[in-house]
Simulated assay, not measured.
Amino acid sequence: MAIRAQILEQIYTIVAQIPPGRVTTYGRIAQMTEGATARLVGTAMRQLPTGHDLPWYRVIGASRRIADHGGAQRQHEQLRAEGVVFDASGRVPMHLMWPE
């Protein structure tokens, strides 16, 4: 899937702004762009170039859970290291969602 450079730049700019200890969803990022969908945001996260410094791990699914993917364990560890907590069902509490 080819992503227009302008949309990709918007997605990456938004992801770069997510503060440590907070998370947002693919859908929330999509709403902040000019035409991206949640699926497109997910694709952009999967296509990050090697050596990037974007906090991709701060982007989670609408259910407020970590999506099931190859980097899920690493994502969980990185979020916990920043102080993100998960409830008994694996969800991130609403007060940790960004933006408020």
Rank of each mutant, 00 (worst) to 15 (best):
R39N: 10
Q47M: 05
D53H: 15
T43G: 11
G27V: 05
G51C: 08
V84H: 05
E82Y: 05
W56D: 13
T50Y: 05
G21S: 00
M32C: 08
T24P: 06
T43C: 10
L79P: 07
R74I: 03
R65E: 13
A30G: 06
P20N: 04
L79E: 06
L48R: 06
Q73W: 11
A81W: 01
T33L: 03
I3C: 10
S63M: 09
T33H: 02
M1Q: 13
I60P: 02
G70N: 15
I11A: 06
Q17N: 08
M97R: 00
R65W: 04
M45C: 11
M45V: 06
Q73Y: 05
G70A: 12
R58Q: 13
R74V: 12
P93M: 03
R64M: 02
Q17C: 09
E82V: 01
T37P: 00
I3D: 03
Q47N: 15
R28C: 12
Q31M: 06
E9D: 13
A16S: 02
S63Q: 09
I60L: 07
R80V: 12
R28P: 10
P93Q: 04
I11T: 05
S89A: 14
S63L: 13
T33C: 10
T43E: 12
G90M: 04
A62D: 11
T33G: 12
L54G: 03
P49H: 12
A30I: 00
A62P: 12
E9I: 05
I29V: 08
M94G: 07
E77G: 12
R80A: 14
F86I: 02
R65Q: 13
M97I: 02
P99S: 04
A36V: 05
A38I: 02
D53K: 14
M97W: 01
I18K: 08
R91F: 05
A16V: 01
Q17F: 09
Q6W: 03
L79Y: 08
T13Y: 06
L79C: 03
Q17V: 00
E100I: 06
G61D: 11
D53Q: 14
G35D: 04
G27S: 10
I11C: 04
Q6P: 06
W56T: 01
H52T: 08
A44S: 14
R28S: 11
A72C: 11
G42R: 07
Q31G: 09
G83V: 05
A81S: 05
G21Q: 04
L79F: 00
Y26W: 00
